[in-house]
Amino acid sequence: MDFGQAYSPDNLRFLMEGLGMTLRLALVAIILSFIIGCVLGVIRYARVPVLSKLVGILVEIIRNLPLLLLIFFARFGLPELGIKLSPFWAAIVALSIFEAAMISEIVRSGLKSVEKGTIEAARASGLSYMQTLRHIILPIGLRRMVPPIVSQFISLLKDTSLAVIISLAELTHNANIVMGQDISIVLPTLLLVAALYFAVNYALSIVARRLESKPT
């Protein structure tokens, strides 16, 4: 094992570039999947005729497919259907849609957990359905969703490594190139990359714990 060669300045810089791409990818996908996930979750909660059913079926299919398949499909299947995406955006689209499907389930059950009595009280006090949703159900529900949503974000960050199959230059891809130099640096490189992922995710989970324990 050769830690010196594995952690040479060139290799470290190259891995950091990969980490930068991983973080960019995760950030964009987190924002998009949160927005889309909330919208889908509310649609499913609100029981809009036809639409809620349709969204429900779509979410069910996407949730139950491997993300690896979705990423590959977004990159090489969609173009056959006329939608061309660069590796970065293919990864974004696949990650956002997949994680949004997961988040929509969290949002829906979070909203469902808001007690009937609370809702009825709000309506009785003269709030419209829309107002009740905005001022009562969403704030209460969202607070309860914070922990599962954050762990979904951690999953997302980990899942960005799957973009390796579409040759996107993120952390795992760059690690593969570094590991190609010599067999003796494979294990040191893997350990470093694992540590990088761990550090980012652990930081994220600490932030989440802070949020959770914040007085409501």
Partner: peptide, 23 residues
């Protein structure tokens, strides 16, 4: 628990696939 929840599955598989042979 903390370790494996915060590392991508692909890395864990690489550990077994590419890391163990070094040992």
């Amino acid at each position: 628990v903390e370790l494996f929840r915060n590392i991508p599955l692909l890395l864990v598989v690489y550990m077994f696939f590419l890391g163990l042979p070094a040992l």
